[in-house]
Simulated assay, not measured.
Amino acid sequence: MPAHLSSAEAAPAFDIHGLAKVYRTEAGEVHALRGVDFHIAQGETLVLIGPSGSGKSTLLNILGGLDRATSGSARFHGFELTAATDVELTRYRRASVGFIFQFFNLVPSLTARENVALITEIAADPMSPEEALARVGLDDRMDHFPAQLSGGQQQRVAVARAIAKRPQLLFCDEPTGSLDSESGVQVLEAIAEVTAAVGATTMIVSHNTSIAAMADRVVKFRDGQIAETVVNARKVAPREMSW
C-alpha cells in the first residue's frame, strides 16, 4: 500500500471475500478463481503477476464490472459488485473505472483528441482531452490519427482516454504487452504519473515480472488463487527498472 499509509490507516477501496469464478464448457468446468480473499487500499498500486490462466485477468474483469463472479463477495466502498444489476454495473464502470488493455482500441478515423473526447463527453467531471493528452506527453500529437502514431504513442492515447474521467480505479491488463521496452517504459511512466495525479487505485496485470518493482504490493497468482503477496519496501520508477 502507499508508503505513507499503514494498513490500519488506509481506507479500503475493495473488500474481497471467497471470490470464485467457474466457466462451464463442453469439456467441463474451468475454475478461474478459487476463493480469493484480500483487501485493496485506496490509492494503492498493485501489480498482479502469474502464468497464463492463473486468474489475474479474471479478477480484474470482475472488479472492473466486465464479468460476474460465480460466488463470493467484492465490495467497492460498500457497493457490492456481485449483487449489482447490469444497469448498476454500467453506471459503476462509467463513473469510477478507467480501463487500459494490451490492444489500444482506438477509433482509427478519429484523432487522438477525438478519441479521448469520446470519454470526456459522457463523464461527470472530466479533464479536457487536451489536459489528459498533455499529462501523457502528447500535447504535440493531439490532432494526429492513430495511423500517424507509434504503438507507444497510441497506448498513451489509451491511457489519456482512461484517466480523462478522473477515475477512482485504473485497471490495466498487459498495457505494455505489445510494445518494445522503451515504449513500455513511457507508457508505465504515464500510468504512474496520472495515477498519482488523480489519486486512483491502480491494478496492473502483467507477465513482465520487472513491472512488479513499481507497485506498492505485488500479488502473485497460481491456479486461481493468490499464492503470495509481497510489499515493496521501495517503489521503483519505470525508468529505473531492469527489462
Rank of each mutant, 00 (worst) to 15 (best):
Q154F: 01
A158Q: 06
A132L: 05
I204G: 00
L60C: 12
G72S: 10
M203D: 09
P146A: 00
T25K: 13
A215S: 11
I62C: 02
A162L: 14
A124C: 03
T120R: 10
A27F: 11
A196I: 08
S6V: 14
S128L: 07
P51Y: 09
G184L: 13
I119L: 14
A84T: 04
F171D: 12
R217L: 14
N105G: 07
E228R: 15
A117L: 06
V97Q: 08
S183T: 12
I211M: 05
V87L: 05
D139R: 13
L170K: 01
K165L: 14
P108E: 12
P126M: 10
D173P: 01
H31T: 13
F14V: 03
V136A: 01
E121P: 01
A162E: 07
A132D: 06
N105S: 14
V97T: 05
G177R: 13
R91I: 03
A197L: 11
G28Y: 09
A32Y: 03
A13L: 01
D216P: 02
A132F: 04
V30H: 11
V236E: 11
T209L: 11
R68W: 13
R222F: 15
F38D: 01
A124I: 04
S71W: 03
P51E: 06
G137S: 02
D140P: 00
E228C: 13
Q42F: 02
A233G: 15
K235M: 13
V136I: 06
E240T: 07
F104P: 02
A69M: 11
A215H: 06
V47A: 07
F79K: 08
L66R: 04
I163A: 04
E193C: 08
A20P: 11
I16M: 09
R94T: 13
R239K: 15
R239I: 14
M241R: 10
K165R: 14
F99C: 04
V22I: 15
M214C: 04
D140M: 08
S96P: 07
D37E: 11
G137E: 01
I211A: 01
L66N: 08
S54R: 12
S242E: 12
K220T: 15
A95T: 04
E29R: 03
L46C: 03
R34P: 02
V97M: 02
A83S: 08
F99L: 12
I62E: 00
S150I: 03
Q155N: 02
